[in-house]
Amino acid sequence: MIPLEVIKALANVAIITQFSSWAELDEDAAVQMLEQMAGDLQMLGPDDLASLSEGFRKVSESYREAEVRQFVWELPSALGLENDEEDADLD
Rank of each mutant, 00 (worst) to 15 (best):
V68D: 05
W22L: 12
T17L: 08
K8D: 07
T17V: 10
V31P: 10
M37E: 05
E67H: 09
E74P: 03
E65G: 04
L4K: 14
Q18D: 03
A23M: 07
R69F: 06
L90W: 12
L75Q: 07
G80I: 13
E74Y: 09
V13P: 08
N12W: 11
D26Q: 02
D48P: 05
E85C: 08
L79W: 02
Q18Y: 09
I7A: 02
K58Q: 05
P76I: 08
S53G: 10
D84K: 15
E82Y: 11
E54T: 12
A50F: 03
E74D: 12
L90D: 14
P76D: 10
I15M: 03
E65K: 01
D48M: 01
A9V: 04
L44D: 03
P76K: 06
F71A: 03
G55D: 03
V72D: 00
G80E: 11
Q18S: 09
L41Q: 00
L49A: 00
A14R: 14
M43Y: 13
L52Q: 03
V72R: 02
L44E: 02
D40G: 15
Q32Y: 10
D87R: 11
T17R: 05
L4Y: 15
L4C: 11
A50N: 00
E24K: 03
T17G: 03
S77F: 13
F19G: 05
R57F: 07
G45N: 09
D26M: 01
L81A: 03
Q36C: 14
F19I: 04
I7L: 04
V13N: 03
G39Y: 09
I7Q: 00
G45M: 03
D47Q: 05
E5W: 10
S20L: 00
S60T: 08
Q70A: 14
V31M: 10
L79E: 02
E85M: 08
L41H: 00
F56S: 08
D26F: 02
N12M: 12
R64W: 15
L79F: 01
